[in-house]
Design a binder for these strands. Structure first.
Lengths: 195, 195
DNA sequence: TTGACAATAGAACGATCGTTCTATATCATA
DNA sequence: TATGATATAGAACGATCGTTCTATTGTCAA
């Protein structure tokens, strides 16, 4: 029970609270989760965390986490000695949500079925982000209706014509009829191993 | 100036505040951002948002967004009539951060260079999530040191031996020396089009 | 042992929170 | 126009917030 309370302990418990509740804890709540009975003790630790730069106060005086607790180190290039040098705290790298999603309201997710874009590195069970009200550019990957089915194809403009091509030699290019229906443009791909 | 204030207006402004500040606004702040002068008017609108299920109160009475503002609709399968039916509000789909990152402390990001895993659908300039203290299983993609360089390979155990294979016929399988160094296991891939 | 410092407890305080009340102003419909 | 419903303003209130103070305990080194 003589467990020395460390800055890291307190930090971790506050981060855990934030991840669970989607907001920062009050001083009373911090008192509960770190196991002290007085708010003044919390104040004591919060000042330490502020000095250490782990916490901040925003313009209104509310506590804020300095860095996104889900952000990852970005190890720029795969080169010598990389993984050992964990010293570089370049954690300024983003949340994937911000990175991938420009407009949540016009985007949706799709679980990929089929192998039509296999050579573009899009495989079955990948998730793709589709942005629906964006005009397809030449070379974009689009979600289009072909023979009543929605599939992904490269979008090409050749002369005045639109050609839809799979990234798979198994499938032939398609020159759509007048009523080409395009659901959206693929703006991102996400794959997860070890479900 | 006779702009009717709608529920959606208020919702959007609160969400915008949340995304910008990482916390929910106070009533005074809501008054500012929606342009009213009295907190009682804010209360009036908040009750509406609560009734509509757009906002909630947590156990302590703090306002919370019911759904993650970055979450996307998941359109399950690519089949008929899909994109038109935006009625299905199955937005229960996650943030990519939660989806991809199990342990932020032991994971890091890598920008892919080279084509060694091209046939596994991992291409140059993709981002991969590497989890560093996880024991590689047979068939995993690992980040390993080969001839002083860090590259991605399939990890295979054949008999008592470890074989590292690229997903590219250009490169031959490698049977590493005794001092095999593995930086981690690839647990996710993220690609973004239209930077 | 003693003294200095780190850590905790508890009480009090002003400020701000969200709520509630009354009172107007605006809009829609009969 | 008359009437009810909708939307706004402003003041007041109790509750809780974070801060500050005093006081006590525990730890380590001189």
């Amino acid at each position: 029970m003589k467990v020395k309370r460390t800055l890291q302990d307190v930090e971790k418990k506050i981060i855990a609270f934030f991840l669970k509740n989607g907001r920062m804890p009050t001083y009373s709540e911090i008192a509960e989760i770190i196991g002290v009975r007085s708010k003044s003790v919390v104040h004591f630790w919060v000042v330490k965390l502020l000095d250490a730069g782990i916490l901040r106060k925003d313009a209104k005086g509310f506590l804020t986490l300095t860095k996104n607790p889900r952000s990852l180190r970005l190890a720029g290039e795969v080169c010598a000695g990389l993984p050992a040098s964990a010293e570089d705290e370049i954690r300024d790298i983003i949340s994937f949500d911000e990175y991938l999603i420009r407009n949540p309201d016009t985007s949706f997710l799709l679980s990929v079925t089929g192998d039509s874009m296999i050579e573009a590195g899009i495989r079955e069970k990948d998730m793709v982000v589709v942005e629906s009200n964006r005009a397809p550019q030449n070379g974009d990957i689009v979600l289009a209706e072909v023979d009543g089915n929605w599939t992904m194809k490269y979008f090409h403009r050749k002369g005045g014509m639109v050609v839809l091509e799979a990234a798979n030699p198994k499938y032939s290019p398609i020159i759509p009829q007048a009523d080409l229906r395009i659901a959206g443009v693929i703006t991102g791909v996400v794959r997860k191993y070890h479900k």
